[in-house]
Computed example of a mutant assay.
Amino acid sequence: MKNQIQFRYVLNDSWFASSENMRFIKGEQNKDFIMPLKDNRKM
């Protein structure tokens, strides 16, 4: 966010797929995200 490059989606690994990260990306950063989910993750 600091380098002023315009983007719409955040793409990340399943390692970072958590509800806290989803809330942060969608709520505070106002971006959409693409992330795979493991079976043992809570939504």
Rank of each mutant, 00 (worst) to 15 (best):
1 M>T: 08
1 M>L: 13
2 K>G: 12
2 K>I: 11
2 K>P: 03
3 N>P: 02
4 Q>H: 15
4 Q>C: 14
4 Q>T: 11
5 I>V: 12
5 I>R: 10
5 I>W: 08
5 I>L: 13
6 Q>H: 13
6 Q>C: 05
8 R>I: 09
8 R>D: 15
8 R>L: 13
9 Y>D: 06
9 Y>V: 10
9 Y>C: 06
9 Y>H: 13
10 V>F: 05
10 V>W: 03
10 V>D: 01
10 V>C: 09
11 L>M: 06
11 L>K: 02
11 L>C: 10
11 L>T: 02
11 L>G: 00
11 L>N: 04
12 N>D: 06
12 N>H: 13
12 N>S: 14
12 N>E: 06
12 N>K: 10
12 N>R: 12
13 D>V: 04
13 D>T: 05
13 D>C: 14
14 S>I: 08
15 W>H: 13
16 F>S: 00
16 F>W: 06
16 F>H: 01
16 F>P: 00
18 S>T: 15
18 S>F: 05
18 S>W: 03
19 S>I: 14
19 S>L: 13
19 S>T: 07
19 S>W: 07
19 S>R: 14
20 E>G: 07
20 E>C: 04
21 N>P: 02
21 N>A: 09
21 N>W: 03
22 M>L: 14
22 M>D: 00
23 R>M: 11
23 R>F: 09
23 R>H: 15
23 R>P: 02
24 F>L: 09
24 F>D: 00
24 F>E: 01
24 F>M: 02
25 I>E: 00
25 I>M: 01
25 I>V: 15
26 K>N: 12
27 G>T: 08
27 G>C: 06
28 E>F: 04
28 E>I: 02
28 E>D: 15
28 E>R: 01
29 Q>D: 03
29 Q>W: 08
30 N>W: 01
31 K>I: 04
31 K>C: 05
32 D>C: 06
32 D>V: 07
32 D>K: 07
32 D>W: 04
33 F>V: 04
33 F>S: 04
34 I>L: 09
34 I>H: 00
34 I>P: 01
35 M>D: 02
35 M>A: 06
35 M>N: 01
35 M>L: 03
35 M>V: 10
36 P>N: 08
36 P>A: 11
37 L>C: 10
37 L>G: 01
39 D>N: 14
39 D>E: 14
40 N>K: 15
41 R>C: 06
41 R>E: 04
42 K>F: 04
43 M>H: 03
43 M>G: 03
43 M>D: 05
